[in-house]
Amino acid sequence: MDAFSVFYMRQTISQVPDELLDAAAIDAAGTLRTFWSVVVPVIRPGLAALAVLTFFNIYNDLVWPIVAVNDPARQTVSVLLAGLATNVTGGSTSSGFDLWGQLMAACTIATIPTVIIFLLVQRHFIKGLLAGSVK
């Protein structure tokens, strides 16, 4: 867990109203029950945003997979796209123009998981945006 994640969640949790925590204490809820039943539903949009940002960070990582993975059959999508882009611009083939279509198709396919992840957590973003709009 990096420093951004810790700071982001600390700021998100600090915005939970004290009135909700006091109400849970009056209802004799313990610490774990208060966290699970009161805090987690309130910070769910922040958790969704952090999940998407963390997924994008890991999915787009280039340096660590280049260093750690030696087998070409186990390369990540970012490494494969970087290699394909190098072939297009470096001219490892006689005509680099025929690889542009493959590069664009590969980039389009590589964006599909990110779109799916966003669509799965989209409703949490909408709840977070509308949380303070209605009294």
Rank of each mutant, 00 (worst) to 15 (best):
D22M: 14
A24K: 08
A25M: 11
I26T: 13
D27K: 06
A29F: 10
L32Y: 09
R33Y: 09
R33K: 13
F35I: 04
F35A: 06
W36V: 11
W36G: 10
S37P: 00
V39I: 02
V39P: 01
V42T: 06
G46K: 08
L47S: 02
A48P: 00
L50Q: 13
A51C: 15
V52E: 00
L53F: 14
F55P: 02
N60H: 13
D61W: 02
P65D: 09
I66M: 15
V67N: 12
V67I: 15
A68Y: 10
V69L: 14
P72V: 05
A73F: 08
V77T: 13
S78Q: 08
A82Y: 09
G83T: 05
A85M: 06
T89H: 03
G91S: 05
G91C: 03
S92L: 12
T93M: 15
G96Q: 09
L99A: 10
W100E: 15
Q102I: 11
M104A: 14
M104W: 13
A105D: 07
A106T: 03
C107P: 00
T108A: 06
I109H: 05
I109R: 00
A110N: 10
A110K: 03
T111D: 09
T114D: 01
F118A: 03
F118G: 01
L120F: 12
V121A: 07
Q122W: 11
Q122S: 06
